[in-house]
Simulated assay, not measured.
Amino acid sequence: MNRGNDLPGVHFLLSLIDPQDAAAVRRRLGIGRPEQYPADRAARELARLDAPRSALLWMLERDDPATNQLVFHHVGVADAVKRDILRGVPFGAAAGSLPVPTRCSVRFCSHEEPKIQISERGVIGGLREARTMGSARMAVEAVSRRDWSDVAEADRAEPLPGYVRWALTVRIDCPPEVRAQFGSHPKFTHRLRTAGIVELREYVERGRRPQNVLGLFQFGAPLFPHRVAEAAALLTPLVRTEIGANPDAWAVLAQLLPTFSGTVPELVSTSGAIASA
């Protein structure tokens, strides 16, 4: 029998059908139940699956101090986000400040607050001064979570420089409504996707490859369970309609999954069609 984590994408989809039917499919495929990973190991699995950068925001939305610590030590997280984490700023629905861990589980780590330079003209003034991508990135580092409404208001009053808009847009914590204010052209959306900034529905329905997309939700359960539940709600009707408890369809899906280059809905529909042919 194969180990339970050999096919994480299959296990995630199996969680969407009746448990007894899922158990029968596992027996047919010769796989056990998946291992439950602790959060730190799950985070490493997400990195291996080339998870989109938006997954870091999904982690922060949980408002869990231990999960926030994992994000804090992730390469590429903006210093402004790290500063907010250390100040206990919630990124989800929590009211008030969050506890900040004083002990670090990562070797050779530091919880020292990043030094961020703020223009003499303030956060918004610094954004308006930026005229190169380098200066824009520096100016954007000063934007904290509480500043986003001011940023949006300032841009409506007078559009911010283009480089600044882009640097703000690719911040993982840029609110969707502010990002939409900066641009909606298909080329702009494509650039965002390339930068790893995606909406959950878009990632579920259009993300490639299915092995990575589904693996992200299987391993993401301890890190962003609320987003995993949203993904499950989007896919459940399709999975139950197209493959349901058909063991032949599941066998086809397991065979296709490692190399399938389409989307998750295409994988599910294709598996059901082949099994019914």
Rank of each mutant, 00 (worst) to 15 (best):
N5A: 07
L7D: 00
G9D: 03
H11W: 02
L16P: 15
L16S: 12
I17V: 15
D18P: 02
P19M: 08
V25D: 00
R26V: 15
G30L: 14
R33K: 14
R33D: 13
P38F: 03
R41A: 14
E45T: 06
L46H: 01
A47I: 08
R48S: 05
D50K: 09
R53N: 04
S54C: 04
L57A: 01
M59K: 04
M59E: 08
L60F: 04
L70N: 02
V71H: 02
V75T: 07
V77N: 01
A78W: 03
A80R: 06
D84P: 12
D84T: 11
D84C: 12
L86C: 04
F91V: 12
F91K: 01
A95W: 09
G96N: 13
L98D: 08
P99R: 07
T102R: 09
C104F: 15
V106M: 07
C109H: 13
E112C: 14
K115I: 11
I118V: 15
S119H: 11
R121G: 11
R128D: 09
E129A: 15
A130L: 13
R131C: 14
R131H: 09
M133K: 13
M133V: 12
G134F: 09
G134M: 08
S135T: 15
A136Q: 05
R137A: 13
V140Q: 03
V143E: 01
R146P: 00
D150G: 06
D150K: 15
D150W: 07
E153R: 05
R156A: 03
A157C: 10
P159R: 08
P161V: 06
V164A: 03
V164N: 01
R165W: 10
W166P: 00
A167Q: 02
V170W: 05
I172W: 01
C174K: 04
C174T: 12
C174E: 03
P175Y: 12
E177K: 06
V178G: 08
R179Q: 11
Q181L: 13
G183Y: 00
G183K: 08
S184P: 12
F188M: 14
R193F: 10
A195G: 12
E199K: 14
E199A: 13
V204F: 03
P210A: 10
N212C: 11
L216H: 03
Q218C: 01
P225C: 09
H226I: 14
A229M: 15
A229P: 14
A232R: 05
T236D: 07
R240W: 04
R240A: 07
P247T: 10
P247H: 02
D248K: 14
A249V: 08
W250L: 04
L253Y: 04
F260Y: 06
G262V: 02
G272F: 03
G272H: 03
A275M: 07
S276C: 10
